[in-house]
């Protein structure tokens, strides 16, 4: 019986990318959290649209049919699975993790 562990090159690559995706999701979530905490009443649009600018997502945002207001930005990043830069979409690319854990 061998006790030295075997790590397949493909799995190592999968773990690397999984960490990258996790990091992206985490970053975006933190930005959303900060935006929420510091938005000032009456100036929500300005605060939330800042998120779009930080991510250089202006073109993508308009192409998805959204208009620049706070609710749309939240939808765009939190629930829009069709937006490749949304949290659910980034998270869905966790195929490498499924390959490792079957989940």
């Amino acid at each position: 019986m061998r006790f030295d562990s075997v790590l397949l090159a493909r799995d190592a690559e999968g773990l690397f990318w999984m960490a990258r995706y996790l990091e992206r999701v985490e970053n975006l979530a933190r930005l959303i959290d900060v935006t929420q905490s510091f938005e000032s009443p009456g100036r929500e649009t300005e605060a939330w649209f800042g998120l779009i600018r930080i991510n250089a997502d202006e073109k993508n945002f308009l192409e998805r049919g959204f208009s620049p207001d706070a609710d749309h930005v939240k939808q765009f990043y939190l629930t829009d699975k069709g937006n490749r830069t949304s949290i659910p979409a980034i998270w869905r690319t966790r195929a490498p993790m499924r390959a490792r854990c079957g989940r």
């Binding site: 075997v6 790590l7 397949l8 090159a9 493909r10 190592a12 854990c101 079957g102």
Partner: peptide, 29 residues
């Protein structure tokens, strides 16, 4: 996935393996 874990063996797909001089190898780190 379940059986690979229960057996304690690597789960591989075709591209993880290759044949050289009639011997089979897997690509590891």
């Amino acid at each position: 996935v379940f059986l690979a874990r229960e057996m304690g063996v690597p789960l591989v797909v075709g591209p993880d393996l290759y044949v050289d001089d009639d011997r089979v190898f897997m690509r590891t780190i």
